[in-house]
């Protein structure tokens, strides 16, 4: 892979989550999660955290909590269960 465009360390992770606000991106996410992730120059850890998803890892890597929460709901979880479900996920994803 060619070097990603320079950005802050947390940028592309957040960019991937933010873009899920776009309906076309959401459709791609629903149809083929790997293809959606291929759009972004993510390191292996960030990609794994998005794939798992590893809620704690996402937060530890600087994903914005509002975006993490929207991703949580998009993943089909009930909104009131974030702390319970995220608390159970493995530290490493």
């Amino acid at each position: 892979m060619t070097a990603p465009p320079p950005a802050s360390a947390r940028y592309w992770l957040n960019r991937a989550l933010f873009d899920l606000g776009d309906p076309a991106c959401r459709r791609e996410f629903g149809a083929d999660r790997a293809a959606w992730l291929d759009r972004y120059p993510l390191d292996a850890g960030a990609r794994a955290a998005l794939e798992a998803p590893g809620w704690r890892v996402l937060l530890d890597r600087g994903a914005l909590p509002n975006l993490v929460f929207k991703y949580f709901m998009l993943s089909g979880h009930p909104p009131g269960k974030f702390a319970a479900i995220a608390g159970e996920t493995d530290e490493h994803g």
């Binding site: 909590p65 509002n66 929460f69 974030f82 702390a83 608390g87």
Partner: peptide
Amino acid sequence: HSVGTLDQG
């Protein structure tokens, strides 16, 4: 309040 963090609730 907390949203999208482990202390949500």
